[in-house]
Every structure is written in structure tokens, then in C-alpha cells.
Design a binder for these strands. Structure first.
Lengths: 311, 311
DNA sequence: ATGAAAGCGCTAACAA
DNA sequence: TTGTTAGCGCTTTCAT
């Protein structure tokens, strides 16, 4: 007990004993056993982080932020990669439960509400990124994609574009739905409507497929708004291959501001989301929900329009 | 005990008892407690994976591979991000030790040999990616960067380039050193020598700085070989800004084949490394070193020249 | 085929 | 200020 007290800074030991204990611990290379601690305390000092696809450059930034905040608070991060598969999402939420994490953060969940809430219920604390949920289910960090989408359309219209088509990303994405609402509302406000809407994977390859389809089905479009930057990059490649100049004939706008966005040429206009902050805030919110049974709930992040060369 | 036996498929229980146990377990939503298991067995069924920078698109692919192989074997992956800081690398190796992982995989370690070996010693099993080490210290998965570098130079020379400069990446990178050896040898074999060598961070920003410096100090170069694709992307941006045509005036070649390499325009010629396989093999090797005290040691991967538009 | 005892390393509760 | 007891949930060993 005295050893335990000393090594945990709980005081109640003479200065001399403390010295001896600390010295011995260091000589023996003592490391407290986290299993014994976990067994005793039923807490793991670990939190789970689920991302849809670590290969999408959006998420490593979020992870970095989460990692920093977690390790600053003495927590470890267990990273799990869903690979854009909602079945696997469900399994991984369960796997993290088996690992006795103290709480989980789920990035852009694709599961429908009922299944998601059911899977999350047994967890002690949950934060959702880019998905709404009632406070009993989870805290939330959401991007205001609707406002972002609105800004995208305003910007294009201001640049004189009128025949705008939409690459809408995955059907199961809730953020995608918000974007669509914003696109439609704002187009309508300008007396316009979308020249075409195509769903696709949130990847460059998905963007290529979608763009090819739109170019074929909706000739004469003069702008493409995309679900994310990867989609935009794919679209860009298709346009270039078809000899369509950007932004001359078609303007292009993405979402996220992934690192490559500004390295492209033409550099991509996009709606920047603060990814690092998102990860940090998610961890902070989760820890606060773990610590106190408090009702802190949601944070909203509004994306910022970054005007580059594609518009 | 009977419960334990049944739930672990160890047999030795009547069919009826097994039934009852399995039923009860599922009704009670029973999940074995990994802390108790870990405490008892002194094994965590977790392996640590250290990467220099998760934000570099090279590593998410490696992580994906490692994740697949690990979860297929019933192991969990604890991911740690070094942020290109060798001090932190040392700390994280220690942190993983405290977490009682069964073994660790270290990607592109930047620590000098002595410090690295010392930090690794207390671990039960280790695999190094892109770094040599004696078998007692670790198993290794290495890329034959020297051969890769050689192919890069041969290709440039074949394309008629003679005034070749090198963006060499971080000084502390061991893979960078092998590349330099290959570059120099092969240049010499063609009766040439490097028109300039500049070290830099392994990022697009690093590539920009390095390229700017080379353009200023070594005018008239007609090709740039880069430590990695990110460096090449940075160099590309600088050339474009300076009105230098690629590959017209300067040819450009990278290493890694990150996903954006082929999405750039002009698309980047590069030496492809099988990243997924690397992660998978690393896990397999580690598990084999954990399981048997066997002497399986090294795997060498030779990068493949992918010719695109920058050369 | 089933179960009792014991101990992995830790710490809360309670002596001394 | 220091120490004893007990128990977290599991599995190895040894009965029954």
C-alpha cells in the first residue's frame, strides 16, 4: 500500500520512505501493470476512435488532433478503421466495447439511426463527429455543412455560374444530406436548380465516375460542387482528360480542404473544415462526458470558404 | 472452470452443459474481461505500430495492411504517431511497453542505432520497417531503396537527362541514405554526378524549400529526383510558379507512389512501394516472432518504377 | 465431466 | 505513517 500511495502521489508517506520507494522502483524498472489497474478500477484509460477510411486524407488530421488531446489527458487512443462499411462499423463499436475502452468517438457514422443508437448504448460515453444525436446517446461535434454548401453556391453564382451540377458523395452519409439541403435551398434562392445530382464513393475514383456521368447526362454545365475534395480531384482529372478547361469552362469546388487541395493545379477552391480542432474537441467533449455525468452536448463548426484557382 | 472451458472451446463439457452456458452467456451479454485475461496471461493480444507521420499518405496504407493482418489473427493495433520527432519516438516505444503490448512494429525509425536498440530491448518482439537491425534486435521489412534509386537514375538518363539534382529528404532517414548511395553509384556509372543535393522535411513544404534552393544554386538542371512523392509535389509547385515546364525543362521523379501521385497533372513518375503488403508482412513477421522464438528475420521489397508524365 | 483453490498486480477499506 | 485483508475476473493445477 505504501508503495502504491507513493507512486500515485497520494501522499501519506514519510519523505524518507518515499525516496526509497522511488529509487527502488527506478532501479527495478518498475512499470505499473495496466491490466491489474483495469481489473481493479474497471477503467482502461483508453478511448476508441472510429474513422470511415484512414486512407482519406481528411481523417489523419482528425486523428492527430484527437491523439494530442488524448495523450495530454493521459489517455490512449485505439484507432479503428471502418473502410466505409456500415456492417463493419457495427462490429467495431462492439469490439471496442469488449476492449473496455472508457468511451468512443465515432467519425461520420454511416449506420442508420436505430442501429447506431443500439450499438452505442452499452458504451459508457460517446461522441459523434458529423452526425446528430440526442444528448442521452452521445455528444456531438458537427460541421454546419448546410451553411458551407450555401456559401459554395453563393460563390459560384457570384462568379457568374448558373448551370451547376452536384457530385453528392455516398447516399448513406448524413453530412452529404445536409450539404444537399444547403445546395438546393441556395440554388432555389437564386432561382436556379441543380443540373444533375450523382451519388458516389467519397474517393477520387468515385469522383471520376460521377463526373463522367454528369458530363454525359448534363451537357453544358458550368460548375461542379463536390461532396469532398477527393471527389473534386477525380472530377478534375476527368475534365482534363476531356479537354475541358478549369475554371474556364467548368468551375470546381470541394469540401474539407485536404492538404493536397492547395497543391493541385489549378489549386482547388474548397470549404475548409478545422480537422485538428475537431479531433481535439471531440476528445475534450468525450472526457468531460466520462468524468462528470454532465450534459455537455454539442459543438458546431462552420466551414470556411477558401477561394483558390478552380473557381 | 466449466464456463471458461466452454467459452474457450476447450471441450471437456457435456453437450447439455455447453448449451446452457452458451445460452446464459448470451442472455447476460457476457464479454470476457481482457484485463483479467491480461493479468493472468501477461499477454495483451495487442501490438503497437509506430509511424513517423500519419499525415503522410504513405503511412495510412501501411496501417491498413497491418490492421487487416492483425485483426485476422485476433490482435489489436495500437497506433502511435511520432510526428517526425526522434525524442518522441523513444518515449512512444516506452509508452507501448507500459501498455504491455505483445510486440511492436516501428516504421522508418529515426533514432540512431544505439538509442533505438536500447529502447527496443525490453520489448518481447519487434519488427522494423525500412531499417536494418540484427536478428536479436528485430525482424525487418526493408525496401531496397538503393535499387529503386538506381532505376530512377537509369530512367532519367535514358530519357536524355544529364544534369540531375537531388532532393534528399531528412538527414536522419536511413532509407534516405540508401537512396543517396543508389543515386550516386548509378550517376557515377553513367559518368555523371549530382548537380546539387539538398536535405529537407519529407513533406510537400519541405520539397518546396529544397526545390527553390536547388533552382537558385544549380541553374540549368534538367531533372530532380526526390526522396518521396510529397517532396516531388512541393518541387512541382515551385517549378510551376517559376514558369518551368515539367517534363519539358525539368523531369521529376518521386518515391512511394502515394495515391495523389497519379492524380496530379502532370501525373508523377515514381517508384512504387507495396505499402499494404508491407504492413501485412510486418504483422505476420511479428506474430511469428511472438509465437515461436524463431529466427525469421527479413523481407526485402524492391520498388517498381511507375512511369507517368513527369519524365 | 465438473469444480475447488490459488494467484496474476493493483488499490479501497480498514487496522495498528 | 505503515501495513493487512480482500477482491476485481480469469485460467492453471489439481481434486473429485
Amino acid at each position: 500500500m505504501t508503495v502504491s500511495r507513493v507512486l500515485n502521489d497520494r501522499g501519506g508517506a514519510s519523505a524518507e520512505t518515499s525516496q526509497r520507494i522511488i529509487l527502488a522502483a527506478s532501479e527495478l524498472n518498475y512499470r505499473p501493470n495496466p491490466f491489474a489497474r483495469g481489473l481493479r478500477s474497471d477503467r482502461s484509460k483508453a478511448i476508441g476512435l472510429l474513422v470511415p477510411d484512414i486512407t482519406n486524407p481528411f481523417f489523419p488530421e482528425v486523428i492527430r488532433g484527437a491523439e494530442d488531446a488524448a495523450s495530454a489527458a493521459g489517455y490512449n487512443l485505439l484507432l479503428s478503421n471502418v473502410v466505409e462499411n456500415s456492417k463493419r462499423e457495427e462490429e467495431l463499436i462492439e469490439t471496442l466495447l469488449r476492449h473496455r475502452v472508457d468511451g468512443i468517438i465515432v467519425c461520420s457514422p454511416r449506420l442508420p439511426d436505430a442501429a447506431l443508437h443500439k450499438a452505442l448504448a452499452p458504451h459508457r460515453a460517446v461522441v459523434l463527429i458529423n452526425r446528430e444525436a440526442p444528448n442521452e446517446v452521445a455528444g456531438t461535434i458537427v460541421t454546419d455543412y448546410e451553411t458551407g454548401a450555401s456559401r459554395a453556391i453563393d460563390h459560384l453564382v457570384e462568379r457568374g455560374r448558373r448551370r451547376i451540377a452536384i457530385i453528392a458523395g455516398p447516399r448513406s452519409s448524413f453530412g452529404g444530406k445536409s450539404r444537399l439541403v444547403g445546395f438546393r435551398k441556395t440554388l432555389a434562392a437564386h432561382g436556379l436548380k441543380a443540373q444533375g445530382i450523382v451519388y458516389c464513393d467519397p474517393t477520387a475514383a468515385g469522383g471520376q465516375t460521377a463526373a463522367a456521368q454528369l458530363l454525359a447526362e448534363a451537357p453544358g454545365i458550368d460548375a461542379l460542387v463536390c461532396y469532398n475534395d477527393l471527389n473534386a480531384i477525380g472530377a478534375m482529372k476527368v475534365c482534363r482528360a476531356a479537354g475541358i478547361s478549369i475554371p474556364g469552362q467548368i468551375a470546381l469546388i470541394g469540401f474539407d480542404d485536404i492538404p493536397t487541395a492547395e497543391l493541385l493545379s489549378p489549386a482547388l477552391t474548397t470549404l475548409r473544415v478545422q480537422k485538428r480542432e475537431m479531433g481535439e474537441e471531440a476528445v475534450r467533449l468525450l472526457l468531460s462526458r466520462i468524468a462528470t455525468r454532465n450534459r455537455q452536448h454539442g459543438i458546431v463548426i462552420v466551414p470556411e470558404l477558401i477561394i483558390r484557382e478552380t473557381t
